[in-house]
Design a protein around this nucleic acid. Structure first.
Length: 504
RNA sequence: GGCGCAUUGGUGUAGUUGGUUAACACGCUGCCCUCUCAAGGCAGAGAUCACGGGUUCGAGUCCCGUAUGCGCUACCA
């Protein structure tokens, strides 16, 4: 029985890279009929927050990734982790290190590592040498009993190689000489990451560890731990990383909200669309078909389809049109215009509600109208937000006129000031009002007035929606209905709001 | 510094065990459609498969080296 897990640390929003790791784990579990477990790695108590745990849970729910069994909090197992580390000391597989703890600033660690490595190389000392590694058992126990602080380190064999077969990256080898005696327990008794993951994965019966490639080299340390505990080593599948356009690691600090999953929810993504997009980052379907429903994704997914090269998540921070990856935006638009309306409606409802444009009638007497309006306007929308912004005029009288549209379609032709109210009259005279009759009326009117129909059509679009672009005009007439259409055609707002500013 | 991983058009990817003109999607350009903008249809630009050596009749595909990027190297996760 396959058992996989997603194990985020709750130190912030759910990063899209993490979300993708969750997705791949989930897809794999659902594909093979295994279990997808969720574990919150909150061992770093200073940085972990309940709020981010909630946000992770919300994010997974939004993406439709349901987990099996109970939620596990790693911190709940701290005592077990400590006991396990002590047991390794007793068995001689780990040792107490009485070296005083070094204080390190988070920012300077990388540089510190390099500096120390250079110094060691220059002096010709083995960076792994530790005076306490071979301290006698008696001496070690005596000092511990004397309350001298110590960390517990794994005793890594000096020679030999560690190896494992990664499902994505293939056979991996690392000489023991390259693996330091990693700290298992801090001198304050706090269990560290490598110890905790391994122990928890053993306890949860994890069979496949699917996670970011940043853990690829750490895996050797972990396999050593599995062996020390006499446990079977799971299979590993490391995922290529998701990079920013400049090939740097995506980070909130540098790249802002584009990396946060909640951003996509808040900016009007359809969950299925974003899930689909995420699945294609580092994985490709065997048949090459890219638009995949939840079930198709599950059916097509396989670890073998995962690539090895890091993927660039393409976006332009300062360009509102390309605030996130173009393909993600395209895919969202694709979903919005092709998904079953019944599934879209609740999302539009939520969007309208959040912008105070929702009316209960849409769920009731006007349900049919609402569905029709959504069906028509969704054709050219990219996000759910468009329903309340570009689509505002369909749901409210309180909409803005786009200045460019007004100038181009209305002010440019002075005659329109008189013609549009007249057009309103003929619109109003229609008995059975719909797209067809509206079109007939408008065309008849334009023939009589001897102007091109296009002039009136475009002017009408701007009068009725405030915009220069939108659905076929006659559909708009039908959606807005006879009265509202006529009323808007008579509006003086375009002239009031923009004509003075023209300045000749 | 050491070790590891990666490198196919702007981006995401496909390229089975080496074999003809390197494929698909997004984006981009043009045309058609047309009341606008999309969508859709058609056409097109864009890759000497990071670079340099090999192996071979033949390499994007195998080997070596170089470069670049990324990751790890913490009493972070």
């Amino acid at each position: 029985m396959v058992r996989v897990r997603f194990a985020p640390s709750p130190t912030g929003y759910l990063h899209i890279g993490a979300a993708r790791a969750a997705l791949f784990n989930w897809l794999f579990a659902r594909k093979v009929g295994g279990k997808f477990l969720l574990r919150i790695e909150d061992t770093d108590l200073q940085r972990s927050t309940d709020e981010s745990t909630r946000s992770i849970l919300e994010g997974l729910e939004w993406l439709g990734l349901d987990y099996d069994e109970g939620l596990v909090f790693q911190s709940d197992n701290a005592d077990k982790h400590r006991a396990a580390a002590k047991k390794l000391v007793e068995e001689g597989k780990a040792y107490r290190d009485f070296t005083p703890k070094e204080q390190r600033e988070d920012k300077s660690v990388k540089q510190g590592i390099v500096d120390r490595a250079r110094a060691h190389a220059a002096e010709g000392v083995d960076h792994r040498s530790n005076p306490y590694r071979d301290l006698s058992k008696e001496e070690s126990e005596r000092r511990a009993a004397a309350a001298e602080p110590f960390a517990i380190r794994l005793k890594v064999a000096p020679t030999g190689v560690s190896h494992f077969a990664d499902i994505v990256y293939g056979e991996q080898e690392r000489a023991h000489s390259e693996i330091e005696d990693l700290v298992l327990l801090r001198s304050d008794g706090h269990p560290l990451y490598n110890l905790s993951v391994v122990l928890d994965d053993i306890e949860m019966g994890i069979t496949h560890v699917i996670r970011g490639q940043d853990h690829l080299t750490n895996t050797h340390k972990q396999t050593l731990l599995y062996q020390a505990f006499g446990a079977g080593v799971p299979q590993f599948a490391h995922l290529p990383l998701i990079l920013a356009p400049n090939k740097a690691k995506l980070s909130k600090r540098k790249h802002g909200e584009v990396v946060s999953l909640t951003t996509y929810r808040d900016r009007g993504f359809v969950p299925a669309a974003f899930r689909n997009f995420l699945a294609l980052l580092g994985w490709s379907p065997p048949e090459g078909k890219e638009l995949l429903s939840r079930d198709e994704l599950i059916a097509e997914f396989s670890l073998a389809g995962i690539g090895r090269a890091n993927a660039v998540f393409n976006f332009q921070e300062n360009d509102p049109r390309h605030w996130t990856d173009d393909k993600a935006l395209w895919m969202n638009a694709e979903y919005i215009r092709t998904m079953p309306v019944a599934e879209l409606l609740p999302m539009v409802k939520a969007e309208l509600r959040s912008e105070k444009l929702w009316r209960e009638e849409y769920d009731d007497d006007e349900r049919e109208w609402f569905e029709k309006a959504v069906t028509v306007i969704r054709q050219r929308f990219f996000t759910l937000k468009d329903f309340s912004s570009q689509g505002r005029a369909y749901f409210s009288e309180d909409f803005d006129f786009d200045e460019g549209a007004v100038r181009k379609n209305i002010l440019k032709e002075p005659k329109l000031k008189e013609m549009l109210p007249a057009l309103a009259d003929s619109i109003e005279a229609i008995e059975s009002f719909d797209a067809v009759s509206a079109e007939a009326a408008l065309r008849a009117f334009s023939d009589e007035a001897q102007v091109k129909a296009g002039l009136l059509i475009n002017a009408s679009r701007t009068m009725l929606t405030g915009q220069a672009v939108g659905p076929s005009m006659f559909e708009v007439f039908e959606i807005l209905g006879r009265e509202r259409s006529a009323m808007r055609l008579r509006s003086q707002r375009p002239w009031h709001e923009f004509s003075e500013a023209t300045g000749g």
